[in-house]
Design a protein around this nucleic acid. Structure first.
Length: 902
RNA sequence: GGGAGCAUAGCUCAGCUGGUUUAGAGCAUCUGCCUUACAAGCAGAGGGUCCGCGGUUCGAACCCGUGUGCUCCCACCA
């Protein structure tokens, strides 16, 4: 069969993915094996694959594939999140394009459109994961609004409400005026902004002057109910208890005193607007002040609550004006009254909505909350499991972040003024009473026990739905129906899951809450290890964003480089616990690696039909000169290469095992990459390679094929497609690499590994000497070796000759004149060449080396002559220093001799 | 404002218990090669004040202190 010049991934990848699917390799059913369970962090149902997903899911696939090959029952559950705000916003946008406003639709009509949209676009992202090679058990695909899942969420709400953990209350919440919903604290992102500090004066009612207040939010002035100063602030002592007049609205408000006010800031006087600021609200409560709301749900002015003040024409003209326009307007209007003292530039922070980016309003509203302190208090393992590594975080530094958040946890606002999501199971009668129940019928029964006259169609359900995270926190349980069908065999087998792979950015949103849910509802941790990936940035370190246009088209990249190369590229650039700086050149490196593998395959395939049977006809592939030599080292030469690589392979397999155990995936991949490229291709294959059109011994050939297969098996979790392809092209294999079980690792022989390293060093040193002396690669040399023990070199003569293009090797006890001298450890090599040698350059080189060695020796001697070192250091450390000394002295002697030779 | 982390080659990072030939890798750079698997390649090389300063120690990239510079998390001084 003719193999193409370069590896072409596309056809190979889709072919193998189909094959694996057809064989059902990704499907898992409970059996006697140990389970290795991973649940995917469910992407937004309407999402498309981006670099973050790519990194995330590549890592999960590596872990899953490796577990599958190591005798585990690997189960990786796919699915999507209904993502209430994000999805609802998309649906609203889609409807707007069609000329339909949300407000013109009933809830049911809207949900119909939303489901339609979900069916059409939902799960595109799952198809994209297939392109990446993810070995997910597709039969288990879940969605956070599946009917059982929906029921589970409702059940949990009812349970927590019954336990008094969930309550309804009028609180200041983070209000997103764009999506017109409350948000949890976690959904608010604070951003630095340039704003202005306005100094507004409020005249005293007694005409004795005025108080100036500094504010960044003049648009809320119409909601002012007091001016507050610090009681110790002597500037204002005499004014406390007096009244001032709010500009424009002419409301009379008191001047009060409270420790809260910082006398140093602004003018030391603070205006109190309890309806629009959390702190003001607290102060308002404390001082028994009314909250006057002046903004509606969209952040537009409303005069509704100003009735007591009999609003003027001017005030009424603000009706419906957006908060930011209103700010300008009010400033102008107050300026017209000469009550703006000055305006300063001010750098402040504002909260923005994580989803819509809108600036958050603090707004007093009736919402549902979870009492987190109480909840966590009931399940101490939520905090301790992470501290004690019952749940291990990678990187461990995030443990601090976690425990700090837990220690300072605030109540969780779980209601959202949205329709897309689990509707809150609270039911109201017309009089403001409510009950919590799963169905209208159950709610009706509850109401009836209090009020016999009530009719079932008189009660109505809460319009709001639950925070998305209130459903996703059940994910590791409910994908196995652990909540809706507790104690079922699947759940018992797969839960707790093994490893969670997710982004650091959702540690509070999701990871922490899954841990809470796990302990609270099943009394078990949801997973044993959490691998946190960093954020994917561009190579300048900027976040990927649509605005910057620095977010690469992932499917395009997969098309261009192949999925294996993409996986390689993203992982190789991704040290554990750090952000990754994405650079397309890493994918190029991955593609080149594919090609390297492909070419190694081509080389080995060339030998397939050229095997000789029996050792006598074995060819070393080197020149006739070798064959005429007195002793025959040909057999041992290949034996050495084969034995050495076998040992090297074992050694690296051990290292990889160790790294994988510590979740150092990027390093593991680098290690395998170097094993394949350097040890296998550059050294081993070159060592066993027969000469042009020469045969190769069957035993070496077969051993090489096995090695290559084992390398492919080691690499398979990282680059599944090309490894499977090569596995099948190497020889007729009836099984598939994807599920081929990994054998126990034989131990490796240190002395053979050491010989291999020495050989590499000698070859490199001799090649370097050739290079420096400008001996052309084609010019042969005669090599003389001076070593204490020559047997080691005799067994690898053929490799050495071929690798440094020597036409002969002889052994000598003395230095040889007019040669280039190379010293490696204690052995000396004399390169004899036809070429005229430039003795000055040689001399300079040697002198430079001599100086270096002498300096080194000096430092070693200094150490050894230090009595305290000899007394305190461990014996092996001293022995090592002594060896350094001996080696350095030997080398200095060699160099000095060589200098005499010149 | 509070906390955590980081600083090692041009870039991205290893360096795990303080001692492993006076610091390693990949990428990039430079030199020489179209050597019959591979120029998406081969062979080789150069490149470091381990952020500054001080300390502990026989010995420090590693431990301690301090300064500087970044990054992240938490926290709504209007």
């Amino acid at each position: 069969m003719e193999l193409s010049k370069n590896y072409i991934p596309n056809e190979v990848e889709s072919r193998w993915y189909e094959h694996w699917l057809g064989k059902g390799y990704f499907n898992s059913k409970p059996d006697e094996r140990e389970a290795y369970t991973v649940v995917i962090p469910p992407p937004n149902v309407t999402g498309v694959l981006h670099m973050g997903h790519c990194l995330n899911n590549t890592i999960q696939d590596i872990l899953i594939r490796r577990a599958r090959m190591h005798g585990k029952n690997a189960c990786w559950v796919p699915g999507t999140d209904h993502a209430s705000i994000a999805t609802e916003a998309k649906v609203v946008g889609m409807l707007r394009e069609r000329g339909i406003t949300k407000s013109s639709l009933s809830r049911d009509e809207f949900l119909m459109y939303a489901w339609e949209w979900k069916e059409k676009y939902g799960g595109i992202i799952l198809q994209q994961l297939k392109k990446l090679g993810c070995s997910l058990d597709w039969d288990r695909t879940s969605f956070t609004m599946d009917s059982d899942y929906y029921k589970a969420v409702i059940e949990i709400f009812i349970k927590l409400h019954r336990e008094g953990i969930i309550y309804r209350g009028l609180r200041m919440v983070n209000w997103d005026p764009v999506s017109k919903t409350a948000l949890s604290d976690e959904e608010v992102i604070f951003k630095d902004i340039d704003s202005k500090l306005y100094f507004v004066s409020y005249p005293l009612t007694d005409g004795s002057g005025s108080i100036t207040v500094a504010t960044t939010r003049p648009e809320t002035i119409l909601g002012d109910v007091a001016i507050c100063v610090n009681p110790t602030d002597t500037r204002y002592t005499s004014l406390v208890g007096k009244e001032v007049i709010v500009p424009i609205i002419n409301r009379k408000i008191p001047v009060i005193a409270d420790e809260y006010v910082d006398a140093e800031f602004g003018t030391g006087a603070l205006k109190i607007t309890p309806a629009h600021d959390k702190n003001d609200n607290e102060l308002g409560k404390k001082h028994n002040l009314k909250a006057i709301n002046t903004l509606d749900a969209e952040g537009k002015f409303t005069a509704e609550e100003l009735a007591d003040d009999t609003p003027s024409e001017q005030v009424l003209s603000y009706n419906g004006v957006d908060r930011f326009v209103l700010r300008k307007k009010i400033v102008e209007d107050i300026a017209a009254l000469n009550q703006i003292q000055k305006v300063e530039d001010y750098k402040g922070q504002v909260g923005t909505s994580e989803r819509t980016g809108a600036i958050i309003e603090s707004r007093l509203s009736l919402q549902w909350f979870m009492d987190m302190k109480k909840f966590i208090g009931q399940h101490p393992a939520i905090v301790s499991s992470v501290a004690t590594d019952k749940i291990k975080f990678h990187p461990a530094k995030l443990k601090n972040t976690y425990s700090y958040w837990m220690d300072n946890i605030k109540d969780w606002c779980i209601s959202r003024q949205l329709w897309w999501g689990q509707q809150i199971p609270a039911w109201y009668d017309g009089e403001g009473n409510y009950v919590v129940a799963a169905t209208r019928e159950e709610a009706f029964e509850q109401f009836k026990s209090q009020n016999e006259k009530i009719k079932i169609d008189e009660i109505f359900q809460d319009e709001d739905c639950l925070d998305t995270w209130f459903s996703s926190w059940l994910w590791p349980m409910e994908v196995f129906k652990g909540v809706s069908s507790p104690g079922n065999p699947e759940f018992n087998y797969y839960y707790p899951t093994t490893t969670l792979v997710t982004g650091q950015d959702i540690i509070f949103f999701w990871v922490a809450r899954m841990i809470m849910a796990g302990y609270a509802f099943k009394d078990k941790q949801p997973f044993a290890d959490v691998y946190f990936t960093g954020m994917v940035r561009d190579k300048q370190g900027r976040k990927m964003s649509k605005q910057l246009g620095n977010s690469p088209d992932l499917l395009g990249l997969i098309d261009q480089y192949g999925a294996d190369a993409t996986r390689f590229g993203i992982l190789i650039a991704s040290p554990a616990g750090n952000d990754i700086l994405f650079d397309e050149s890493a994918l190029e490196q991955g593609r080149n690696f594919n090609n390297k593998l492909w070419n190694a395959l081509k080389l080995i395939k060339m030998w397939e039909g050229r095997q000789t049977f029996g050792v006598n006809r074995e060819s070393s592939g080197v020149s006739e000169v070798v064959k005429s030599k007195t002793h025959d080292s040909r057999l041992t030469t290949h034996d050495f290469a084969v034995t050495w690589f076998g040992n090297r392979l074992s050694q690296v397999k051990m290292e990889v095992d160790e790294m994988m155990g510590q979740f150092r995936l990027s390093e593991a991949l680098k290690t395998i990459y170097s094993l394949i490229w350097d040890d296998f291709c550059s050294w081993y294959l070159e060592w066993i390679k027969p000469g042009f059109e020469q045969p190769i011994s069957t035993s070496v050939y077969q051993k090489t094929v096995v090695y290559f297969e084992e390398l492919m098996q080691l690499l398979h979790p990282f680059m599944p497609f090309i490894t499977e392809e090569i596995y099948h092209l190497l020889q007729e294999n009836t099984d598939d690499l994807c599920v081929k079980q990994v054998q126990a690792i034989p131990s490796s022989n240190k002395s053979i590994l050491g010989e291999g390293e020495l050989l590499k060093k000698v070859i490199s040193a001799l090649r370097d000497a050739r290079n420096k002396n400008q001996i052309k690669p084609k010019d042969p040399i005669k090599l003389h070796i001076q070593a204490d023990t020559i047997s080691g070199y005799q067994s690898i003569e053929n490799i050495l000759m071929k690798q440094v293009n020597a036409e002969s090797i002889t052994y000598t006890k003395e230095s040889i004149a007019n040669t280039i001298v190379v010293a490696v450890e204690k052995d000396k090599f004399f390169i004899e060449t036809e070429k005229q040698l430039d003795s000055t350059t040689l001399k300079a080189e040697l002198l430079k080396d001599l100086e270096h060695q002498q300096k080194f020796l000096e430092s070693v001697l200094k150490k050894l002559s230090n009595e305290r070192f000899v007394q305190n250091a461990k014996p092996e450390v001293i022995a090592l220093e002594q060896k350094k000394q001996a080696d350095a002295q030997a080398r200095i002697k060699t160099i000095e001799e060589s200098l005499k030779n010149l």
